[in-house]
Amino acid sequence: MPRNRPTRFAARSALVALVLAVATACGDAGGLQGAGPTETAVSPDKLWPELTPASRPAYEIGEVNREVVKGVTVPGNDILDVDPVAVVRKEIAQSPGDYDGDNGTYKQTGRLMAECGKGAGRGRCPVLQPYYRDLTGDGHPEMTVGFRLMPGRTTAVRVYTVEKRRLVQVMGWDDAVSGVELAGRSVIIRSPSEVAGYEYRLQWTWDADQKAMLLTHDEMLRTGPHTKTTKTPHPSPSGRSPSPSPSSSVSPSRSASSPSAASTP
């Protein structure tokens, strides 16, 4: 059956447009262009091959931070039932000289623990609101706790998991903190640098063999315009002081007044 006139006219117009487009493309000087010669790949130069490779680290910084929290049990194996304030009190009890009296390094933290009656993250309590996320991949959440070490500006960051109804600390670090993030199976801590326009970024990732979170990344990143500085560079990561103690969504703490309900930060 022959097509009607409007259909033939439309087909003829489309054919003319196609021919013009091809002709225009043939006269176009565009397309792929060379970016110039490729730089020759250079392999790294190995320095001082005569040196005997080291077999042990120069500094012991507690790379595997794993410790059972004594005196805290988890009867139902549910870490959401663990009181983060009680956990911090247990840590403080291990080093009372750092928190008690007028000469304690963190004497203000020790005094303000009395303000934690309403729970973590409330009022003047130095224990920050805990967050819950599966960091080990076993389908159960871990608890990330932070508490301020005062009168200074240092923050203690801890991660806890549950094993056979026991609470186990699997990561700990004290530092001046710019921010803390949970990403995948990792905890990321950002800290200020003495070099203007830069910050430190440290990342701990769960290691199934060590059953702890290991420091897998330690880098210095630019955060602003470059500015010269005459300050002494920050010591290397190995010289930093480690902590004093040996589902993909982030869940904040549950309200202290209602242990079964999740609160919003």
Rank of each mutant, 00 (worst) to 15 (best):
S251E: 12
A208Q: 12
T155D: 05
P44V: 07
V85N: 00
S258A: 14
G36S: 09
A208C: 05
E63T: 13
P75T: 14
Y160L: 04
S178M: 11
N103V: 09
L20G: 10
V187H: 01
K228Q: 09
V127Y: 03
Q210H: 13
L215Q: 14
R153H: 14
R133W: 01
P265K: 02
P246V: 13
T229A: 11
A11V: 13
V250S: 12
S193H: 08
S243C: 09
G104K: 00
V250E: 13
A120S: 14
A14W: 08
A114H: 06
T38G: 04
T223S: 15
Y99R: 01
S241C: 05
I188G: 06
R111W: 02
P49A: 13
T161N: 00
V16P: 02
E181S: 12
P235W: 02
T264M: 05
F9P: 03
L214D: 08
L18V: 14
M171I: 07
M171E: 07
S241D: 09
D218T: 12
L18F: 10
H234D: 15
N65S: 14
D102C: 04
P96E: 03
P259M: 02
A14H: 06
D218Q: 14
E63I: 08
R148K: 14
G139P: 03
K211D: 07
D28C: 10
G62Q: 04
L202Q: 13
Q210M: 07
N65A: 14
G139K: 04
T38M: 07
P126I: 07
R222M: 12
D207A: 10
R124Y: 10
V42F: 06
R5E: 11
V168F: 00
K164M: 03
P49K: 03
A17F: 11
C116R: 01
I189K: 04
W206M: 10
P265Y: 10
Y99T: 06
V250T: 15
P141H: 01
I189D: 05
P244C: 03
S247M: 07
T264I: 09
S238N: 11
T155W: 02
K107F: 09
P235R: 10
P126C: 04
P141L: 00
V85S: 00
L214C: 08
T73K: 14
K231H: 10
P6R: 15
T232D: 11
R133Y: 03
L214R: 11
E163F: 01
A17G: 10
S178G: 11
A10R: 15
L214Q: 09
T232N: 09
T154G: 02
D134I: 01
G146V: 00
A212C: 06
L182Y: 05
P259K: 01
F147Q: 01
R66W: 03
R122V: 15
T232E: 13
A29E: 12
S253P: 04
D209R: 14
A208W: 04
R240T: 10
P252S: 11
V187Q: 02
R8N: 11
I61E: 09
T144E: 08
V162R: 00
T144G: 05
W204M: 09
P151W: 01
C116E: 06
L112M: 11
S263D: 11
S238T: 08
R56H: 13
S236D: 13
R185Y: 08
A156N: 04
D209K: 15
G146F: 01
P44L: 01
D175E: 15
L51S: 05
V16F: 12
T144V: 12
V72N: 04
M220K: 15
L80A: 12
E91S: 09
I188R: 11
P237G: 07
G224C: 06
